[in-house]
Computed example of a mutant assay.
Amino acid sequence: MTFNLASSPIQPFDARVMLDVHSLKALRQRRSGREALSEQFQERRQCLTRAAIKRAESGRPVPYRTVRHLAAFYGIGVETLIDAAPTRQAPPARPVPDVADIWDVERLQCRAVIDAVHVGGRGRIIDVQGVAGAGKSPLLSFGARDARARGYTCVVLDGGRARIPAVHTAADLMLGLLGLQAGAVTDAVPLADLVRSRCAALGVSPVHIDACVGLIDAPPEWPLPATQLLQTAALCALVQHRAANQPLLISIDDLQCADWQLAMILNVVVPTTLDYPVLWMFATRLEPGPMRRPLGVRMDALARTTLHLTPPPVRTDRADAGGVHRLARTAGQDAG
């Protein structure tokens, strides 16, 4: 699978292009200052001086070879650095990076992996970790939107609402791969019949169709080990069928809420589908104390892009809600 070069913002080698200054600064601030960055370029025998880096961050056009060196250094695609609208003015420089700058780096890393799966045709894993409120769910939502814009089929299992986490199951993943939802089905057409028809339309074998139906209905009278094996194989087949014609994104938020059946299935399905253009995005909430690992050794041994998110800093230039409440209560007591 390749991109349409006619619509790409990339210019010929000897052209000068405008860079996305905001993203470029966020990348550099994550590494070091301009002097240290220039030294790292020289160590890698990439001819980029401090003056060239400053020029790139100032919003002035730079040679395309500079863009290639920057992209190679950061390990991202060239197109993610080039400003898609070169006529607009660059945003003013900020003396201190804010939370948006940091999240821009994470978005760039996600976008680079999305592009790599699309171009290379092989699967990847993005593992997002962090405490509650660190921004894991928004990052997964960004990944799904960006992937859809690039022609992906997206299967999203979210983490519930109102502090009530959803327990992710193998049935949820199966229904998502078929474009179905358990709560949206009426009594007119049984859900099991919809599963059978959609599996058949994808070319899934009859025994795997029975295994899929067994995830939401009474399973066939097979021995338990055979049932587990066939259900795992059925989900592998579904993922492969969905990724056969276009890249597939499977996003699972709050992975720590996965039940053990889904966890065991993922330990098999994820490694066996990485030969297909499948991007797995996981978000795991880190809790104080010992962490329950829903995924086993086979998953932990896989190469992945791991993003550790931290919650945004608390602003000190305004009173918190508790402080305002205490202040109001004190004022009322004084008035009485």
Rank of each mutant, 00 (worst) to 15 (best):
C154S: 14
S23Q: 05
R148E: 14
P220C: 07
R122T: 11
D83L: 05
D101G: 07
P313S: 10
V131P: 08
R298D: 10
D193E: 14
A116S: 13
Q228L: 13
G33C: 04
G296R: 11
T284N: 12
V67R: 09
E57F: 07
D83R: 10
P92S: 11
H22W: 07
L194D: 01
I252S: 03
P12D: 12
L178Y: 08
L157Y: 03
L139H: 07
L295V: 03
H118F: 14
R122E: 06
L249T: 05
R50T: 12
P86V: 09
P311W: 09
F142T: 04
R196V: 09
T306H: 12
E106Y: 15
R94L: 11
M1E: 03
A211K: 11
R111I: 01
P290H: 11
P61W: 08
G120L: 11
M18G: 01
A328M: 10
A36V: 01
D158S: 14
W222T: 01
K25R: 15
V156G: 01
Q256E: 12
R50S: 11
L81H: 03
H308D: 06
S251L: 13
A166M: 06
H208G: 00
C212F: 02
R329V: 03
L262A: 09
Y64E: 07
I209Y: 08
T87W: 10
N245R: 13
L266R: 12
A116N: 10
L175P: 07
A100K: 09
A328S: 05
I252D: 02
V167W: 01
E35P: 00
G151K: 08
D320G: 15
A226P: 00
C110S: 08
A335Y: 12
D320S: 14
G123M: 11
R196S: 06
R298E: 13
P61Q: 13
A147Q: 06
L108N: 12
V314C: 07
V185F: 00
Q246F: 00
V131G: 10
L19D: 03
I76W: 04
D317T: 11
A211W: 08
V131W: 07
G203D: 05
A6P: 00
I250Q: 03
R145M: 06
A84N: 05
I252N: 02
R44A: 15
A100D: 13
A258L: 05
L255N: 03
Y152C: 08
P225Q: 10
R30S: 12
A237M: 06
G289L: 04
P86C: 10
